[in-house]
């Protein structure tokens, strides 16, 4: 980390992400930070063979885990096979809206997961503990459809991590969590895993609630003594059909494209100049299942 230029280098490629479904999604959520929709083809699907090549390349690079996002990954016709391929290499996480899942896909994934030494994590986006909160953001009837998807996952032995983008005041978090627990238990999910996320003021969300202000940027002073492992770009890169980008949030920014191969992109530092970098700084690596923490604790008072 260079404290004056705010250029951050990758310490190690722990997480390799794939923009597997490009920007294609069956939903058009009003807060989507890359404005995914059924008609957004600005990023395309990644072919299974290309992903297999990256998985092979990831072994000598000692990658620790693999993440799949979109768009909606399960619009990709080979998503099930891609996840089964990945479980031969390491743990896989897939970020889905759970509205298009099919029992036959989950049966195959359940079997592959049972046979693999590695975890397969499903992260399901639901943006409120009831349809009244969720549907205005994610679309008509998406709450009920997502809950049906959660039930399918639970029926197949998975414990999905429910991720909810915070559209309420922070002070209401516990109330929202309690509501989520009640509604998920009704679906047979006895001990639900729930992760609350801040919104990212990019893409559709920028139009909905306004973008980042000029002062919402990381400054050199803020980096003094800061644990840089909290930032996703310190330990991750993402593959899209255009090349290798710095992080899953910024793929639409021209400066996010760091190279055409993993090795080159891993050696490129990135300038922390975006508003989203500020959110990542505030909340830690929100994209990861569990944020890493190497922060030295302060003295007890």
């Amino acid at each position: 980390m260079n404290g004056t230029t705010l250029n951050l280098s990758l310490s190690h490629l722990d997480e390799l992400w794939f923009q597997v479904a490009g920007t294609r999604c069956n939903l058009s959520c009003h807060h989507c930070f890359i404005s995914c929709s059924p008609h957004n083809n600005s990023f395309g699907f990644l072919p299974r063979q290309q992903i297999q090549d990256y998985l092979r390349q990831s072994v000598p690079l000692s990658v620790k885990g693999y993440y799949f996002t979109g768009g909606e990954p399960f619009l990709h016709p080979e998503m099930t096979d891609i996840l089964i391929d990945t479980l031969q290499y390491g743990p896989a996480s897939v970020l889905t809206n759970a509205t298009v899942l099919k029992p036959e896909w989950l049966s195959r994934l359940e079997e592959a997961h049972t046979q693999s030494r590695y975890s397969l994590e499903f992260r399901v986006s639901i943006d409120g503990a009831d349809a009244t909160t969720n549907d205005p953001i994610r679309g008509h009837s998406t709450f009920d459809r997502a809950l049906s998807g959660v039930k399918l996952l639970v029926d197949h032995g998975f414990l999905p991590i429910i991720t909810a983008t915070r559209t309420w005041n922070d002070s209401e978090d516990q109330l929202v969590l309690d509501q989520f627990i009640d509604v998920l238990r009704e679906q047979g999910y006895e001990h639900p895993r729930i992760k609350l996320l801040p919104s990212l003021k990019l893409g559709a969300e920028e139009k909905r609630s306004g973008g980042y202000s000029d002062h919402q940027r990381i400054t050199p002073e803020m980096m003094v003594g800061f644990d840089t492992s909290q930032l996703v770009c310190e330990h991750s890169r993402i593959v899209t059909d255009r090349g290798i980008h710095v992080c899953p949030i910024l793929i639409e920014s021209s400066d996010s494209l760091l190279g055409e191969d993993l090795e080159t992109a891993s050696q490129q530092p990135f300038k922390l100049s975006h508003g989203a970098c500020f959110t990542c700084y505030q909340y830690g690596a929100i994209c990861s299942n569990v944020a890493v923490s190497n922060a030295p604790a302060g003295k007890a008072t």
Partner: peptide
């Protein structure tokens, strides 16, 4: 070996990562 508080779970630690 790289971090005192790193969680190395069986199901999230690839063997090639240990080999590193």
């Amino acid at each position: 070996p790289r971090r005192t508080n790193e969680f190395l779970w069986e199901s999230t630690t690839p063997l090639h990562f240990v080999d590193m």
